[in-house]
Write a protein that binds this DNA or RNA. Sequence first.
DNA 1: TCCATTTAGTTTCGACTCAATACTAATTTC
DNA 2: GAAATTAGTATTGAGTCGAAACTAAATGGA
Lengths: 188, 188
Amino acid sequence: MSAQEANDVLERLCNLQRMEARAFGLRYGLQPVQMEALTYLTQCNRYSNTPQAVAEYLGLTKGTVSQSLKVLEQKGFLRKQADNEDKRIVRLAPTTKGSNLIKKALLTRSLEPALARTDSIKIAELTSALRSILRGMQQINGRKAFGACHTCRFNEDHEKNGYVCGLTREPLSVQDIQLICREHQYPH
Amino acid sequence: MSAQEANDVLERLCNLQRMEARAFGLRYGLQPVQMEALTYLTQCNRYSNTPQAVAEYLGLTKGTVSQSLKVLEQKGFLRKQADNEDKRIVRLAPTTKGSNLIKKALLTRSLEPALARTDSIKIAELTSALRSILRGMQQINGRKAFGACHTCRFNEDHEKNGYVCGLTREPLSVQDIQLICREHQYPH
DNA sequence: TCCATTTAGTTTCGACTCAATACTAATTTC
DNA sequence: GAAATTAGTATTGAGTCGAAACTAAATGGA
């Protein structure tokens, strides 16, 4: 069992995912990149819902992303709102229409049901292996990991007092720590 | 450990892969889709090296793929050759320049080194979990898996007489069964 | 046998993505 | 308080993509 083998299967899985996402988006008049941006926005936390963060997550320039977001807004999938503290910053929030679309897309994709029929021990192994690979990739290429807070080295578990982000010192709820954060870093 | 969790990590990993592939390709004047096509062509077997197969693998229309292949040929990364038996069919073979580029790309990507530093037991678990998920996805969405012959239900192990493809009845070498085939189906 | 159908591939066209560049406006720095 | 930085937008040109129309070779009946 070689690394090449794992690489190939992973590659193929990614391709299938992309094909399905494309096909689904087309049915609703959305381009693949727009689906990806909207998916991200339904899963990211309140530090990470800006055009800049979307651009970093997708690995595209902010100019490019700006256009995709404009389309999503025009079609009623998300709302833009100026930040109260820093007026340069635009906050992006999916509308009900937008988040419903993504929910449906995730259910329609075959990855979800395929995972559902895999036993949970295997999924646990899989997730842990993938996470360690992701950590490795992050170290090697220096890019951000965009993980959820509960796997982040800055996240502090204050037991019955809840969670706190070590970067912003803000308290985080149980729901919060499941969301994707642009400041995410895996523990060393 | 939820399926959602595994889904997210997988999603992120795919995104990182794509970002790196894009960045690498750009340095050599190739578009992401061209890199993907060329990668496929260095890894597929002799039943699967046609424009149609590339289109199926990438989930694009043959017209679209035809253009990408034209560019790859013009830039000297692959050669086209008419099939001897069926003159409609075009056989695609990466040139030395082409396969060297892909070799370099795979090494440059961070997935490869990240896999290298993961212990082999974990990789074995990972591969087996991914494969079972892929099998599930294949059943659900009906798309082709494009796996390597040695994981295919048509592949027959004739022990010291080598391998035989149950579809074409052709003998296959040890190298052959590592390649990606468009007819691939996982065992039930 | 021969004509219709199917299959593999190409070409063309219009809608769209994307990076690069230049731009505005708000914030930070010193 | 001016210069530099940061967040975001607009424009442009190269390139992708799907749809549709096309060519050419193979297949399949009657």
